[in-house]
Amino acid sequence: MNWFGKKKKGAASTTASGSSGGASDPQVTIVKLRENIAMQEKREEHIQRKMNGMVKEAKEKMARKDKKGAMFALKRKKLYEQELDKIQNVKMTLETQVMNLESASQNAQTFKAMDAGKNAMKKIRTDVGIDKVDDMMDDIREEMEMASEISSAIAQPVDPLLADEDELLAELEELEAEDVEDALLTPPAKTPSINLPAVPSNKLPALANDEAEELKKLEAELAGL
């Protein structure tokens, strides 16, 4: 029987959703676990002080020869030791949960990042498919060919007489043929006479006697060689 009246469904659902929402968030859960670890550490310090007090009390009662009181103090110390062991085990469990939850949270974030990267790559591949790339490369090659043709067309010389070049060459050949014919029909011109100097009739002057003798000696030496 409910003495406090029927609980409203809205409040119950709100409480349940709030608790489940907090539990589903790993960061909130990690904070709560760390708060519980801190609380266990405070209780551990309190129990340790109680144990130290029991040891001190047992020593004092032994000094007063109160053996029964000392034994009771040591029994209480044993109870505190058992409680301290429980607290340490709870702390170990909580710290293990924190480590596992942090690792799982990090793995989940890594998975989300990798999944986002995969989706981004998939979208890029969808937007830029192999067919689109092939079409784009074909368009680029076509545009380059058209640009080359335009450049070649622009580089063509603009000469109004270019179409009559064959006719001009034929006329030039006719002129050359006429020049050759005129050269063959024209008689050769007379060679002008060249006035040469007259041959001297006088004899060359005789060499001096000394020079004649030296010349003879030189001829004799050359003949003896």
Rank of each mutant, 00 (worst) to 15 (best):
N2I: 00
W3A: 00
K6G: 01
K7F: 07
K7P: 04
K8T: 02
K9L: 13
T15W: 10
A16V: 10
A16D: 14
S17G: 05
S24W: 00
S24Q: 11
D25R: 03
T29C: 06
T29M: 14
K32N: 07
R34P: 00
R34H: 05
E35T: 05
N36Q: 11
N36A: 14
R43T: 15
R43M: 14
E45G: 03
H46T: 06
K50C: 09
M51W: 04
K56H: 13
K59E: 12
E60Y: 04
K61T: 01
M62T: 10
R64K: 08
D66Q: 09
K68S: 11
G69I: 01
G69M: 00
K75G: 04
K78N: 07
I87V: 10
K91T: 07
T93H: 12
E95I: 03
T96R: 00
T96D: 03
N100G: 00
L101D: 01
E102P: 01
S105Y: 02
S105K: 07
Q106N: 05
Q106W: 03
A108E: 15
M114T: 15
D115K: 09
G117N: 11
A120R: 11
M121P: 01
T126P: 01
D127L: 13
G129E: 07
K132Y: 02
K132G: 08
M136W: 15
M136G: 00
E143A: 07
E145G: 13
E145A: 15
A147T: 00
I154F: 02
Q156R: 07
L162R: 15
A170E: 09
E174L: 08
L184V: 04
T191I: 05
S193V: 11
I194H: 05
N195I: 07
N202G: 07
K203W: 08
K203G: 06
N209P: 08
N209K: 12
K216F: 06
K217D: 13
L218A: 03
L222C: 03
G224N: 14
